[in-house]
Design a protein around this nucleic acid. Structure first.
Lengths: 206, 206
DNA sequence: CACGGAATGGATCTAGCAATCCAGTTTGCT
DNA sequence: AGCAAACTGGATTGCTAGATCCATTCCGTG
């Protein structure tokens, strides 16, 4: 599942804990200040480890970053399991949750995965692939809901639920980016409301 | 208009040309490999200047980056003046243009402004403000079209054209980001098609 | 034509960062 | 117990990249 370790070396419980502590600290720092501005030294201090430990668990900085990408994808997708993407009310609850989360962060950070995509896509092909995989998994959860909606006959027959899921994810990503840049939740609200409005209209509502 | 120079120092014609050459080279490099991976040395070589010249025209790297942000916003917005955002056909032509542009770039780079937003928002407040300003100007051109459409009675009266413009821009940004990460134009197509479909339905079309 | 500010060239300084090394400790297994 | 591997600590290295300095050339103006 996770090929970011130096080599398929067995990890003891303690080792796994240390590794996890490193990834957590790195994820937090990278979320708050980006990949480039997060140094190994910062991670070292935040995780309260020595630098040799870091290189014991990860080949190099890019390997650590890849682990962070996977971790953020897991976290993000895990946090959405409570929502039902197969009903309009479920989508609206999701919308409210996402907006509240942005407000809590004072509109900083953007999307934990999306922002990594923007930072890494052109410089680290391997990391880009990990981000793409994260998006794929995320997309799948939305697809699953919209397919159900479609199967129930609640979307016009010529609607492709998978395409709609992709559009929804895109609207979310763009809304998060604009919200991050403007420091205002309005863009995220506008983007999600527009997409949900479309779903409602494809649903038969005028 | 542009407050990124070291000080309000007079520039000769030759000086302005040199300065422009630096910004162009930096914009190109930054678009292709991001801010962090673009070094002063790279820019120096690409613009065929000496490092002292660079610091003659810009206080430091962040100042150069701000100039690049403004430059990219100008370029981006300038390139959209041919499109009519007040008709469905105009929006569709815009869609086709954007997708073709991504294909030409092999889906690399993302949005010249948006990707800068993601890279700079959390580390350079000044640059973030410049990106936000660029988005504002871009948004304004879309707003202007949708307002006309609304005034013509071609959008349901309770539709807010400004909100719709913001949603459209968000969908575009998210579509570009996903396209960059996935190296596939499908996300951009799905996002723009969905938003245009919504506009069409707000237009009265079933 | 000479004066001064603008523009240029390139060597150099310095800090910060990724990565290495080796010496020590702990842990798991038999 | 004992040994091998997993784990930890921190000093150190080597390099890169941003920024500075100073000497020199260009060019418009009086």
């Amino acid at each position: 599942m996770d090929t970011t370790s130096p080599s398929p070396r067995p990890l003891t419980r303690k080792g796994q804990e240390t590794r996890q502590r490193i990834v957590d600290a790195a994820a937090d720092l990278i979320f708050r200040q980006g990949v480039a501005h997060t140094t190994i030294e910062h991670v070292r201090a935040a995780a309260d480890i020595s630098s040799s430990q870091l290189y014991h668990y990860f080949d190099d900085k890019p390997a650590l970053v890849r682990a962070v990408v996977d971790h953020q994808a897991d976290t993000m997708i895990g946090g959405q399991e409570n929502f039902d993407f197969s009903t309009l009310n479920g989508l609206r609850a999701w919308r409210d949750f996402l907006i509240a989360a942005q407000r809590d962060h004072h509109c900083t950070g953007g999307c934990p995965i999306g922002s990594l995509g923007g930072q890494l896509s052109e410089t680290d092909p391997d990391a880009r692939a990990h981000v793409a995989d994260g998006f794929k998994r995320w997309e799948a959860t939305i697809q699953s809901g919209l397919r159900k909606m479609h199967a129930r006959g609640e979307l016009t027959p010529d609607t492709n639920p998978d395409t709609l899921a992709l559009a929804l994810l895109a609207a979310l990503q763009g809304g998060l980016l604009l919200t991050q840049v403007k420091r205002d939740t309005k863009p995220l609200e506008a983007a999600l409301d527009a997409m949900i409005e479309l779903v409602a209209r494809l649903n038969g509502d005028s």
